[in-house]
Structure formats: structure tokens, C-alpha cells
Simulated assay, not measured.
Amino acid sequence: MQDFKIATCQMDVCENKDENIEHAIQLIKKASANDAKLITLPEIFNGPYDTAKFIEFAEDENDGQTLQAMSKTAKKHDIYLQAGSIAERCDDKIYNTAYLFNPDGEIIAKHRKMHLFDINTKTMKFTESDTLTAGDKITTVDTDLGVISIAICYDVRFPQLWTLMSQNKSDIILLPAAFNMTTGPLHWQTLIRTRAIDTQAYVVATSPSRIDNPYYVAWGHSMIVDPWGKILSEAETKEEILYADIENNKIDDVREQIPVLKNKRNDIYETIMK
């Protein structure tokens, strides 16, 4: 792993796909000009977070407008780009899929959201499974920058997934997400810091900014958290680009001080209860 600067773009998202793509490109350009080597975007950054819009905006991976634009942008600016997530159409199914591009503009990893956001609280109801299909693979890739894993939003609530990403020796875990005004105030920061402490890895959570709209109002508060659980950078509610320095020695230092990865009791955890 090498030391580098990361940028996460908390961006305004509107109903127009073309405008969202162009806006993302401009934010990426700005972050790249500030020497960021890895840049991230929010969950469903190219359109409204809405089950009906997932169908309308869904793209095929091989010829999709959004992915072609992101590929060209990563190559142009010579960066790793975690292009948030989009609605991916594959055969007769739609997935909420996050893509990672290398500086050559190639897709080197993709994560299909494993845990679909089906909730019914006292203040809101949302059912992703009305439209989406869940993914079934852990996503980890070894890059020049370090070992990177990807999860999406609701995936953050399932520690079993994060244990597996930790077992993959992840240095950085990227989390495009769109928490809402119900769950965000109490759970967002706590969950992200907890997962960084659990995995002893950097966790980068990227949200859309908070804009009033008829579909879904995001909590915002994108953040970059280090392996000690310290918040290195945090947005408020408006559009903002966050920056932080990713330092290899910080990961090693935390894991040496509190060697939870060595102290795990797999002999107990993997026991089958009869």
C-alpha cells in the first residue's frame, strides 16, 4: 500500500441524468486538480433515489452512458475512480451496482448491493426489492494504492459482510450511500466509525447532498474515517468535496497496538452448534 490523497464528492443530484453525469465529471476534475489519486461518488449519483427511477435510469454495463463517461474521466485524469453506484440492468434484472475504475479507465471491481433496503419505520417506508435484485459476492481488489473493498449503504448494517472484507485484508473500504433523514441522525456516524474500528481500515462513506425533492432526501454528512475510528473529514448537508491523506503506517500502527485480527477466536466462531 502507498500513501495518497483521497477525495469524496458529496454532490447535488437532480432528475436529469445528463446533468448529473456532467456535474460529477466537473467535481472529479476539481478533485483531481487537488492531487487526489482516488475519487469517490455517492450511491445512485446519476438520478433520483427512487424505485421507479431505478427502472427508468438503468443501464447495461457494456454500453451504458454513465459508465462510458466515468471510464473516460478516470483515464483522462489518471485516477482511480469509485463511480458511486448506478442502477445496472443485466438480462431481466436490475442491481444497485458500484464500479471501480483504474487510471486506464478499466473496470477493475464491481459490487452489487447485497442487502436491499427494505424498511418500514414509523416515519418512512422504502422497498428496494420491489425493483432491485440483491448481489451475492464480496468485492475486494488489490490495487497500486492498496487493497480496496466496496459495500453500498445498507450493507453497512451487517457486520458479517465487514468481517469478510476484513479477512480479505482490506486497507480501504468504500461505501457509496444515501442514508435518509430518519436513520441518518442516529445511525450514520456511529455505524461508519464502528465499521472502521471493526476492520481497522479506512472507511470512506459518500452521500448525495441534502436537497428537498419528491423522491428521497439524503442525510448528507459524507465522511472519511481512519482505522482508529477518528473522523478525518466530514461534510455537512450541502455539496462539498472532502479530502484526506491515506497513510499506510496508520493501518499498521493500529493493528499492532490492538491486534484484533490476530486475537480472533475462529476456533469458536466457526463451531457448528448442534
Results as ranks from 00 to 15, higher is better:
residue 198 D to P: 00
residue 146 G to H: 08
residue 126 F to E: 04
residue 242 L to W: 01
residue 94 I to V: 14
residue 110 K to R: 12
residue 163 T to L: 15
residue 33 A to V: 04
residue 142 D to P: 00
residue 207 S to Y: 12
residue 124 M to E: 13
residue 18 D to V: 11
residue 22 E to G: 06
residue 234 E to V: 14
residue 228 W to V: 10
residue 156 V to N: 14
residue 235 A to R: 00
residue 234 E to W: 05
residue 81 L to C: 07
residue 87 A to M: 03
residue 85 S to G: 03
residue 31 A to M: 09
residue 97 T to V: 10
residue 224 I to K: 01
residue 53 K to I: 11
residue 173 I to G: 04
residue 240 E to N: 06
residue 68 Q to P: 04
residue 204 V to G: 06
residue 261 L to E: 15
residue 165 M to L: 15
residue 168 N to M: 11
residue 240 E to R: 12
residue 227 P to M: 03
residue 180 N to M: 07
residue 147 V to F: 07
residue 268 I to R: 03
residue 5 K to I: 08
residue 46 N to G: 01
residue 7 A to E: 03
residue 62 N to Y: 14
residue 79 I to W: 05
residue 249 N to E: 02
residue 262 K to E: 14
residue 34 N to A: 12
residue 272 I to D: 09
residue 191 L to G: 04
residue 9 C to Y: 00
residue 178 A to K: 11
residue 176 P to S: 08
residue 182 T to N: 13
residue 133 T to D: 08
residue 134 A to M: 06
residue 252 D to E: 13
residue 108 I to S: 02
residue 219 W to S: 00
residue 50 D to W: 10
residue 128 E to Y: 06
residue 13 V to R: 02
residue 248 N to D: 07
residue 38 L to H: 07
residue 219 W to D: 04
residue 169 K to M: 12
residue 267 D to F: 01
residue 97 T to R: 07
residue 179 F to H: 13
residue 174 L to T: 09
residue 168 N to I: 09
residue 220 G to N: 02
residue 201 A to C: 08
residue 151 A to E: 05
residue 69 A to G: 03
residue 13 V to D: 00
residue 30 K to V: 02
residue 228 W to F: 15
residue 153 C to G: 06
residue 196 A to Y: 12
residue 3 D to L: 04
residue 212 D to F: 14
residue 121 T to P: 05
residue 74 A to P: 09
residue 41 L to K: 10
residue 63 D to I: 12
residue 271 T to Q: 15
residue 105 G to Q: 07
residue 210 R to E: 12
residue 74 A to C: 10
residue 271 T to R: 14
residue 135 G to P: 04
residue 196 A to Q: 01
residue 74 A to D: 02
residue 55 I to Q: 13
residue 135 G to K: 03
residue 155 D to S: 05
residue 7 A to S: 03
residue 101 F to E: 10
residue 142 D to W: 01
residue 181 M to T: 15
residue 132 L to R: 00
residue 79 I to R: 05
residue 143 T to V: 05
residue 245 D to M: 06
residue 175 L to I: 14
residue 50 D to R: 03
residue 114 M to F: 00
residue 274 K to Q: 11
residue 30 K to C: 08
residue 176 P to D: 03
residue 155 D to L: 00
residue 267 D to G: 01
residue 12 D to T: 13
residue 87 A to P: 13
residue 169 K to A: 10
residue 274 K to D: 06
residue 230 K to P: 03
residue 116 L to I: 02
residue 186 L to G: 09
residue 227 P to I: 05
residue 244 A to F: 04
residue 203 V to N: 09
residue 124 M to Q: 12
residue 141 V to M: 02
residue 206 T to P: 02
residue 39 I to D: 02
residue 72 K to S: 15
residue 238 K to V: 08
residue 70 M to W: 11
residue 183 T to P: 09
residue 81 L to T: 04
residue 89 R to A: 13
residue 26 Q to F: 01
residue 103 P to V: 11
residue 90 C to M: 15
residue 107 I to H: 01
residue 56 E to F: 10
residue 8 T to Y: 06
residue 60 D to K: 15
residue 33 A to F: 11
residue 109 A to I: 02
